[in-house]
């Protein structure tokens, strides 16, 4: 198998395997780029964003500088919830824990000084479904499948580098499109630099 042959097969088969991710990242960028438009689609439908699941008294100290993920995991265990989550402390009085999968999103608000814990479920919206998928990544969750998703995210990134390199190689071999390709490539690089400097 020649390098040219290998390059073409790699370009194609990698694309076929990663096709769902490329399509997902493309489509899910739209709600990010046109946030207001998608917000308007759902705003008038009368469905509230958050529905309270429970509210209870709760007491767990949150020392300053504590590992929020560790405390978040303890709180989730205390209320029999599990899954991928993130923890955020917007101020000294409050700790938020976000429990999420691709379909559901639950927010636990722990009001530290009031010793009160509120759990709320977020409504489903297709734009949030896609943006949630888009934003998902990282290796901080204690779950094999979540880590595997992050590995695939890295794979998609590496895939893009391979498509760029293999695409440039294939373009260079096609003499009839060399000039126009160079103009397009040069124009893209020049405009990117202009944006970097002028924005």
């Amino acid at each position: 198998m020649s390098f040219n042959h290998f390059n073409r097969r790699l370009h194609l088969y990698l694309a076929m395997f990663l096709l769902p991710w490329v399509l997902m990242y493309g489509l899910s960028s739209l709600p990010f780029s046109h946030h207001d438009f998608f917000d308007d689609l759902y705003r008038g439908d009368g469905v509230s964003t958050w529905t309270k699941r429970f509210e209870r008294s709760y007491d767990r100290p949150v020392p300053q500088g504590a590992d929020l993920r560790q405390i978040g995991a303890q709180i989730l265990a205390d209320v029999d919830l599990e899954g991928a989550f993130g923890a955020h402390q917007p101020n000294q009085q409050r700790l938020n824990i976000y429990l999420h999968d691709f379909w559901d999103h639950t927010r636990l608000s722990y009001f530290i000084t009031e010793q009160r814990l509120v759990a709320e479920d977020r409504r489903f919206r297709w734009d949030w479904f896609f943006t949630g998928m888009h934003a998902r990544g990282g290796f901080q969750q204690d779950s094999f499948l979540n880590d595997l998703w992050a590995v695939v995210v890295d794979g998609v990134c590496i895939g893009f580098f391979i498509w760029i390199a293999s695409g440039i190689y294939m373009w260079w071999l096609l003499k009839p499109t060399r000039l126009w390709g160079a103009l397009a490539l040069g124009g893209g690089i020049a405009s990117f630099i202009i944006f970097l400097l002028a924005l």
Binding site: R9, L12, Y13, M16, F17, L18, L19, P20, W21, M24, A84, D101, F102, S143, L145, N146, L148, W149, V152
Partner: peptide
């Protein structure tokens, strides 16, 4: 010439993606 292998790669990717959607 690449239809069959390309198809297998596409199915494998789609299945893995579906597994993620259903589980995490």
């Amino acid at each position: 010439i690449t239809r069959q292998w390309g198809g297998w790669f596409m199915i494998a990717g789609a299945l893995l993606f579906a597994l993620f959607i259903a589980t995490i």
